[in-house]
Design a protein around this nucleic acid. Structure first.
Lengths: 194, 194
DNA sequence: TAATATACGGACCGGTGGTCCGAATTGCCA
DNA sequence: TGGCAATTCGGACCACCGGTCCGTATATTA
């Protein structure tokens, strides 16, 4: 680890950043994240094949590192949206921010979501999002339902769904999402009958 | 094609069925559909490597054929549920049937959903489901919203989500789903204010 | 039974994510 | 400044994947 012994070697951090940058560039340029291979990334970074693996463990690690880097602005935005008043506003702000983030980083998020087995959920980011959203939903629903509903809301902004809707204007998707949030956070008609 | 010239050779259909059966067996036994390869399937069917490809085109074709075979019962069930009264009942019946189907065929559906680029939506089955569900939702929402809401409802029963929820009892997932359907089909509070 | 269309098997291909190790580079200390 | 140990580099290498190809075996037809 970084804690023990010597300092981290300069070339190591330089290369790690080069790899990160190359991966970002290639993914942004690609239509299908599937045709950005590790070799491509290493080559584009001007680095040997082993280097990305040493720096990030495996493909998923690299993608996650990239997502984390890009997600800082998003995290700020999410924290800001927290100041809104009601649960509907807060949840809408959150999901809308996530939606815009995924639109802005489509290849990356697409890659991250189909990678490996059950990967979208192993991600620590997903855990945070879900916990946060579940709290909001729990203001209106029973805890068990809130948990599932939060998953469902996040599923409604999955990258491949967005992609599939991609030919129609994003406006419409955002409207639909807003409608969904409104409806879910209006409460359960079975609990609060008219 | 089957239409022209001679009859279809007997060994061809025998092999195709053997491949289908072997694939079904291996997938059901597997934890991760990713570790059932085409070679494995061919070997388990006692058949050469090329045969599965000749019979089904490619991996996705094989999986789809398998899903179609297994889905006959489901289709009947869906048609039956259609006789229910209100939109909530019909949508609940439909999504619950889909959920149970995916629980009963987890590896298969898991494989089918991660396969290839944007695959869950290119599937013709998905199209049918979505069209049907959108019709029901449209009884309560504006058409544009109905389209998206139908996608969102289907996203709430995606295999990997179910898988991720898999350690908790399916009861709870089904309850959550029922709650979601109820809430979505209760109508938009913005359109029909209290 | 001969002829012909068809399917069979498995060697083969390009490409993938990931590993490994001798060689080169770096940071530390004298 | 020079030497030494630790660390990283590069890219050959590996197992395996989905998919193709074609000489050979087999089913069908006449």
């Amino acid at each position: 680890m970084t804690a023990a012994g010597r300092k981290e070697r300069a070339d190591a951090v330089r290369n790690r950043e080069a790899v990160l940058a190359a991966a970002a560039r290639l993914l942004d340029a690609a239509d299908d994240p599937g045709d950005v291979s590790m070799n491509d990334i290493a080559a584009a970074a001007g680095v040997g094949k082993g280097t990305p693996f040493r720096g990030f463990g495996d493909r998923i690690g690299l993608l996650q590192a990239l997502a984390e880097q890009r997600g800082e602005r998003l995290r700020a935005e999410l924290a800001a949206g927290e100041s809104s008043s009601g649960p509907v506003e807060r949840a809408t702000a959150m999901l809308d921010a996530i939606l815009r983030f995924k639109l802005a980083n489509r290849s990356l998020m697409l890659a991250l979501e189909n990678a490996g087995s059950g990967s979208p959920y192993r991600n620590s980011t997903y855990g945070r999002w879900h916990r946060h959203l579940a709290e909001i939903v729990a203001e209106v629903h029973r805890p068990d339902d809130a948990d599932y509903l939060a998953h469902a809301l996040l599923a409604a902004v999955r990258s491949d769904l967005i992609e599939h809707l991609g030919d129609q204007p994003p406006e419409r998707t955002r409207d639909g999402l807003a409608c969904l949030v409104r409806v879910v956070l209006a409460g359960d008609p079975a609990d609060r009958p008219r």
